[in-house]
Amino acid sequence: MEPRNSSSRFLALKISPISLPSRKPRKMSLKKKKLPLLKWLTLSTRLSRRKAFDAITSGKVKVNGTVISDVRTLIDPDGDTVTIGGKRVRKGLPAPIYILLHKPKGVVTSAEDPEGRTTVLDLVKKIKTPVFPVGRLDIMTQGLLLLTNDGPLANALLHPKYAILRTYHVKVKGKIPPKAYSLLKKGNLKLDGRTILPVEIKVLKSLEKNTWLSVTLREGRNREVRRIFEKLNLPVLNLIRVRFGPLTVKGLPPGQWRMLTDKEISRLKQVQQASGRGGKDGSHGA
């Protein structure tokens, strides 16, 4: 009996090609980004959030001819036709805009004021694109305020984890005792039960009865500068915010505003991306 030649057996095998069913190329569907009606109206009109909410819930808003009273209704900004009281709202989303305002005293940091006082938006009426202030300055504080319609950037700049530097020139009554310097520089002071972050502080001018200081904070709590010095029994007589991140109010008189330069916008975007990682003053814009 002849031994099997396994190699010859395998060579004799015929392998039939496997035929796979033909598949048509998959079409990628690009879904248009939809936004809640309330959010889109606040971005695309000069209505405050409250007024936009009231307009929708009172039945004054129509989408493609149908009255919509649910503020959460999703719409296509580019495709849907929206009207308020019969007046058509321009389609699409406005381009990002960035305004640096030197807010004067006596002006409210708000879109509107029930008491009829001048607001920061009244100072930029020439700008047709709806904007909002990034953070707040109280009515008696003057200085740098950023206005924009760029929500993600605004949220990043205000988020505590980014520790965006804010520099103020502060005039206080009296002299600064050494103990107060130590408390501020080490952050050994509490507001609302929470310890403040260390403060950079230096004397700009020491007068007989008052002192001008430069104070840099890494957070933006409500009326933080005034409350800090109240706690130290040093009443604030004048307060000016001169810097916010990479932006400075230098050369801009109170009540005036200007558009940010491309370089400033680029630096803000860098701050948004890099501030959480810490770094030198430059990374924070100080």
Rank of each mutant, 00 (worst) to 15 (best):
L184W: 08
N64T: 07
V71F: 02
S110P: 04
Q256N: 09
I201P: 05
G116L: 10
K161F: 05
K175V: 08
G86L: 11
V249A: 14
G59E: 12
V63L: 04
K231Y: 07
L252A: 06
P21R: 14
K103Y: 06
D122Q: 06
N64M: 05
Q273W: 07
T119W: 03
L184R: 09
A111W: 00
P254L: 05
H102K: 12
S275P: 01
R90G: 00
L207M: 13
L37F: 09
H159I: 11
G187H: 04
G276N: 04
T119C: 02
G116T: 09
L20C: 12
K24P: 13
S48P: 01
G135W: 01
L165N: 05
Q256S: 12
S16T: 15
L184G: 10
L213W: 12
L93Y: 10
I265S: 01
E208K: 15
S7H: 15
Q270K: 08
D138I: 03
A154G: 04
P177C: 08
G85P: 08
L184Q: 10
T195V: 00
L74W: 11
L144S: 05
T118M: 12
R136I: 06
V199Q: 01
L189T: 06
N210T: 15
S8L: 14
T141W: 08
Q270H: 03
P104M: 08
I164Q: 04
P17E: 15
L184A: 06
S29N: 14
M259H: 07
L207P: 01
V170H: 11
R243A: 11
I15L: 13
E208Q: 14
V131L: 07
A55F: 03
R241I: 05
L93T: 10
R166A: 06
R223K: 11
K31N: 15
K263G: 04
G193I: 06
D192F: 04
D54Y: 04
K186L: 08
I84T: 04
L121N: 00
T167I: 12
L30C: 14
G279K: 03
I196D: 01
T118S: 09
L165A: 06
P152M: 10
I56A: 03
P36R: 15
F10R: 15
G151F: 01
L20N: 13
F229Q: 05
K269A: 06
S266R: 07
P160V: 02
P178E: 11
I228R: 08
D70E: 14
V271L: 12
I139V: 13
V124R: 01
K33G: 14
V67L: 01
K105G: 06
Q273L: 13
P104W: 10
G65L: 03
R136D: 07
P94W: 00
N233C: 09
T129I: 11
G143Q: 07
I97P: 03
E224W: 03
G251Q: 04
A111T: 00
A180H: 10
K51L: 03
E224L: 04
K14V: 14
G278T: 02
T42P: 00
M259K: 07
R241W: 05
A163Y: 02
G245L: 07
G282F: 11
M140D: 12
L121P: 01
D78Q: 14
R258L: 07
R194P: 00
K32E: 15
